[in-house]
Design a protein around this nucleic acid. Structure first.
Lengths: 336, 336
DNA sequence: CATCCAGAACGAAACGTTTCAAGTCGGGAT
DNA sequence: ATCCCGACTTGAAACGTTTCGTTCTGGATG
């Protein structure tokens, strides 16, 4: 039985409306009253109920951010800029991380909708558009992050992942690789599939040998596994350039490759994806493809804000071009 | 004007109570009615309002997790296990990350309270106990994560950070270091201060020279800065063992130290703290002190759950001992 | 002295749920 | 033919807010 506005009113000997005014329109109150109400609030330990408020008002000032994997540093970097921008606009952000579990993802989406968040930022690896369309019809707007939406109704902000894959391979080609490998998976993840498609096309265009290593999760330890697989081949059967679908994989590979005496980039040039902090911090800094997390975070919040306000978006689907960030794990090869 | 239970009732031609029963006690409905209600829900696009529900019930099934810094992988690792455990107990987790901003932290805490979350998990670097005591009196229980609470009213689950600092230095001593440096800051952060205290005491006890490098933030780039500072000294003035207050710093230092031709662990043994994924994945795997994130995540959720249920905790303040994870960045020294 | 006025406080209504006592209905037992 | 019972269904009340038209107060105006 938490104290409510009524208890405060009783304690202060005023009407409930007066307490409400103290909370929301303090300028209407005489200083005397204000003080009395303030004291009463303190005495009864009153916490405004957002349930009550929302019920009456129909809205909250919270936006929901559904993230696919908080463990990945790339996410943290986007999240930071989202939070900052949202704070500037007077919005709070509640995060939820379904941990790759598609069912839990749906649960969280519903939870957000039921909490009547103002809007949703959704960074998913699954096909969520149908579900988002439903929520939108039910009154919760959303912006899809990092995935190009198909529907003209569904705002989205994404990176051209096909171009990203292409960028990586073209860079490998430029530093002299003739036989490249793509490391990533699973293909059900749209971004992974797109990067691979771009990579494969680029390789074909340049007449470079292409092969793919499949991986169940995009983690450091998965990278190690593939690194070992490559190291165990006879040298002339190894690729001379590897494109890992994210930096975590690249990091893991770098570790086993060098441990097995394979020189990076001398024997194998290595490029990752995401441009996260650890790619740069590595002993052999890893080349990567930046998804421009800071910009994306801001754009995405702005787009959601516009949508919430009911203003039409200049561009429903914004697609940013990824940026190559060459570092020693590929560049060093030129010297060789 | 989102559709409410009333609209559903009207559409289906039944009473509101019936719709509510369909939602919460389906076993009470005849199949016919159930179908009619189901159809109506679909037609009007009904989303249950958690505001209304909460208002009536007084509770939600959400817990709030206030995290100090999602960018740090250590956090992600705790968060993952928190989410899993919470899901098992039927709870959803909303995350908030105030990004080191103490004011924003307070804002989020209030937002959670107003949303009447069932309870709060708080991993803060600040002094939040007073605020949590207030919220607790107002009806929102909480568990302090990673910080030992002072009050017997405030449940907490933490690591013995002093012991952690000691562990690190003792390990450095064992691999033969005679002159150690502590890298970390700011001291206003209680965990940082505790680790340093443990480190300094251990150094004194063993008669080892001790110095401290102060740092404004515990990031990779800050680590690089300190690395440069150390490298620029004449060799005999450099420490022969470094304890970085977290792995991010250690990673940054490792990078500049080796770039400057200083051998790790040959010239300087290096140990970090947190035992995050990247410490292990580094080319020279970095020794670290584990804060046992997985266990902490589970314990903490269980403790909150007990508290929510009103059951007394076996131990109000649980303190786990940190675990040394020696790797090449220190062990390699023995061979030298 | 009667009016009027602005400023301040009031309190009923409405928001969307869930609960629960009360009502309806059909059919089996008497 | 009557009654009772169980299985459903109903609708009013209550949860904590905010809004807004109403009422009250005391001082200024005529």
């Amino acid at each position: 039985m938490p104290a409510g506005i009524k208890d405060v009113a009783a304690q202060a000997g005023v009407a409930v409306g007066t307490v409400s005014n103290y909370l929301n329109h303090p300028e209407l109150l005489s200083p005397t009253m204000a003080q009395r109400v303030a004291d009463a609030i303190d005495e009864v330990g009153f916490v405004p109920s957002s349930a009550g408020r929302q019920l009456r008002l129909g809205v909250s000032s919270v936006i929901g951010y559904l993230a696919s994997d908080i463990g990945n540093p790339h996410f943290g970097e986007v999240a930071a800029s989202v939070q900052n921008r949202a704070a500037q606009l007077g919005l709070s952000v509640f995060l939820a991380d379904p941990q790759h579990d598609e069912e839990r993802e749906a649960t969280y989406l519903d939870a957000f909708a039921q909490h009547h968040v103002r809007g949703l930022l959704v960074a998913s690896h699954h096909q969520v558009e149908a579900r988002l369309a439903l929520l939108r019809r039910r009154g919760t707007p959303s912006v899809l992050v990092g995935q190009h939406a198909a529907s003209p109704e569904q705002p989205s902000v994404s990176i051209d992942e096909v171009a990203g894959g292409r960028l990586a391979i073209e860079h490998l080609a430029e530093v002299g690789c003739r036989r490249v490998a793509f490391v990533g998976g699973p293909h059900s993840i749209v971004q992974v599939a797109a990067r691979r498609a771009g990579a494969e096309t680029a390789a074909r265009e340049r007449g470079i040998a292409f092969e793919a290593f499949d991986v169940a999760e995009r983690s450091v330890s998965a990278g190690r596994g593939i690194g070992e697989a490559i190291a165990s081949r006879p040298p002339h059967e190894r690729p001379d350039g590897v494109f890992a679908v994210n930096d975590l994989l690249a990091l893991g590979m770098l570790r086993t490759l060098t441990a097995e005496g394979i020189r990076v980039p001398g024997d194998i040039a290595l490029i990752g994806y995401d441009d996260n902090e650890f790619a740069e911090a590595s002993l052999i800094p890893i080349s990567s493809v930046s998804r421009r997390h800071r910009e994306v975070g801001e754009i995405v919040v702005d787009a959601l804000f516009e949508t919430i306000q009911g203003r039409p978006l200049a561009a429903v689907h914004q697609q940013l071009m990824p940026v190559l960030v060459p570092r020693e794990s590929t560049l060093g090869r030129r010297r060789a």
